[in-house]
Design a protein around this nucleic acid. Structure first.
Lengths: 175, 175
DNA sequence: ATGGTCATGTAACAGGTTACATGATTAT
DNA sequence: ATAATCATGTAACCTGTTACATGACCAT
């Protein structure tokens, strides 16, 4: 349930139609995440039903059907709650990026604490991978299979390293 | 349909039970991908039905139920086909790691071509992101919102950079 | 006996993808 | 006229997650 929060953030920045959201999503978060228009319309419908957003038929749209969505108080509250909540491990990294954007609209809610928590998690994981590397892949003259296994592990290591490098360049911005 | 190919690769390395596969998956590919045992049993069932793998009840298991799976010719063929095929954009990176492992068991099938194709794609994407960065985020004295938008873009940039660094350290291993 | 590991599954549901479908407006 | 863009949806399907369920074997 994270697309909903991405959409809420986008709508707080500017009330929009589903179509506009789909385009904006691709340009603002497209670097790391994509959402299809079908998904967006589905989630907008759900959020309207939940009372998080209000759908208004645009009157000066002529024959064209056009609904503009805006965030209601309940939506704002839900987004605030979610920003402060620690993310579940599998998608916490992606969620953090949305939390940072959400904070830019809503004011400080604890996203920097979440960033620090994730830094700690990634540091531990990197440590673990490096230990495995030292233990299993520091022998001379490895076989082809071993070299490829090592490459897979290296993928994990450089991913963690680059995440941490980014996080440390980002932390000062939110503190 | 990529878990199936990961499982085929794992089974070629060693015929196993679903339980063993679940553990091995976590240790060999866990750096970037996780599969639950429910998923694994589901896919093993499908592959058995498709004739890609053979399930044999282990006779020397006593009262314990235990099925050992091994890859059949059709499974081998499907895996070979898949390794040579260019991956669809969204999960090509993850798939490549499995393709490299598959090649280590099956022999050369074109995974290095796929790696080169992905390097080209990532180079272009990195170029695009850097152009956006220069165009939109090189002004002096940015607002807090702009700084956070920039951080999101930076996330995309460092991800691409680290992928490319890994790819260039890996390419010599498969050429 | 109690808990941990080995071992295999079913069922419900949430999230994402693909295909299909419609129709107005705007630019060439 | 024709194509591109704006705009909104439905339906089927696949994948992944969570919850539930069972039972043998083994060590303490």
């Amino acid at each position: 349930m994270s697309i909903q929060h991405a959409l809420l953030t986008s709508l707080l920045e500017k009330p929009s139609t589903g179509y506009e959201l789909a385009n904006r999503f691709d340009h603002s978060m497209g670097y790391f995440w994509h959402a299809s228009h079908q998904q967006i319309y589905r989630e907008l419908g759900r959020m309207a039903e939940a009372g998080w957003v209000l759908a208004e038929d645009d009157p000066n749209a002529g024959n064209r059907r056009k609904k503009t969505y805006q965030v209601l108080a309940a939506g704002r509250q839900e987004l605030s709650r979610w920003v402060a909540e620690p993310g579940s491990s599998n998608n916490a990294d992606q969620a953090l990026l949305i939390k940072l954007r959400a904070e830019a609209v809503l004011g400080p809610l604890g996203a920097s604490r979440e960033l620090q928590r994730l830094i700690e998690l990634h540091r531990q994981r990197l440590q673990l991978y490096r230990d495995i590397e030292r233990r299993d892949f520091s022998h001379a003259d490895p076989s082809q299979a071993q070299r490829l296994q090592h490459a897979v592990l290296r993928r994990g290591i450089v991913t963690e390293e680059s995440w941490l490098a980014w996080a440390e360049e980002t932390l000062p911005l939110v503190q």
